[in-house]
């Protein structure tokens, strides 16, 4: 490839970086605008919208509500996903393909359809819309991601370690708890962070399965329907900083852990 082409293709990367960053940066900037109306140019700046957000009880309780949902649904997803991964990885049995297919099914169903299906199922089970229903739908939706990540890690576990533990007298449960599980920790942590982000960011399931109390994305959506305001920018920026910060931290953390366990 000649030099000109190489520069051209490099430019597409940086253009793409601009495309994904500029809208978010503009949104963050707008949160500091000293006027009720969204729009450029920004002539004067203020922090009032942020102080408003942090003294607004509704926003703060919504934030807490979203976090609780994210944590609880992640705990369920991780437990179930890991269990399924342990069953599927490295084992051949009748119906394995079918179980694998069913495991990844929730990840393939388009968002709105999955939300509708959960809503109907919750009604059938007699579960009222609200926190429990949201947690359940997020947990089910996130299981495939955990299962896939854990399976990938499990496939690299040397069989000899388990065999050695069994030879030394460990029963399968202790061998799992002391050899397999510690080996899976980086994958499980990585998957947990991913589930936390998916749940915290999820709109469509929270919207259709929620009761009167909104999660953070649902609250932003409701506020947007009644008009744009820098207040929404401030709320959205708080959500953005939380999610992006958690993502960056997780990326560094899991990378370091993988390095440590591999050496």
């Amino acid at each position: 490839m000649n030099r000109g082409n190489r520069i051209l293709i490099g430019c597409t990367y940086w253009a793409f970086v601009l495309y994904v960053f500029v809208p978010l940066l503009l949104m963050i900037l707008m949160g500091f605008k000293d006027s009720k109306f969204i729009g450029f140019p920004i002539r004067s700046w203020t922090l009032d919208w942020y102080t408003g957000v942090f003294s607004d009880g509704e926003v703060l309780s919504t934030l807490g509500y979203s976090l609780v949902i994210a944590v609880l649904s992640t705990l369920i997803s991780v437990a179930v996903g890991t269990w399924i991964a342990v069953l599927l990885e490295g084992r051949k049995f009748l119906g394995r393909t079918a179980i694998f297919g069913l495991t990844i099914l929730p990840a393939l169903i388009p968002g709105i359809i999955s939300a509708i299906a959960f809503r109907i199922y919750a009604r059938w089970l007699g579960v009222e819309p609200g926190m429990g229903a949201i947690i359940w739908s997020h947990a089910v939706h996130n299981v495939p991601f955990v299962a896939l990540v854990v399976m990938a890690r499990l496939s690299t576990l040397p069989k000899s370690q388990i065999e050695a533990a069994r030879d030394l007298g460990a029963d399968p449960i202790i061998a799992f708890l002391r050899i397999t599980l510690p080996y899976l920790v980086p994958a499980i942590l990585g998957a947990s962070i991913f589930c936390l982000l998916l749940s915290f960011d999820d709109f469509v399931r929270s919207f259709f399965l929620g009761g009167y109390e909104p999660t953070l994305p649902v609250l932003i959506f409701a506020k947007l329907r009644s008009g744009m305001s820098p207040e929404i920018n401030a709320i959205a920026t708080v959500a953005l900083v939380l999610t992006a910060g958690l993502g960056i931290w997780a990326e560094r953390f899991t990378r370091r852990m993988k390095k440590e366990t591999n050496t």
Binding site: P23, L24, M27, I38, G39, I220, L224, A236, L240, E251
Partner: peptide
């Protein structure tokens, strides 16, 4: 990856600000 960790609604709103009449 960083922008993609941000939720659907927040990013949709960012596009609204980018493309609005003002």
């Amino acid at each position: 990856l960083i922008p993609f960790w941000v939720g659907e609604i927040v990013r949709t709103y960012a596009i609204m600000i980018l493309l609005g009449n003002t």
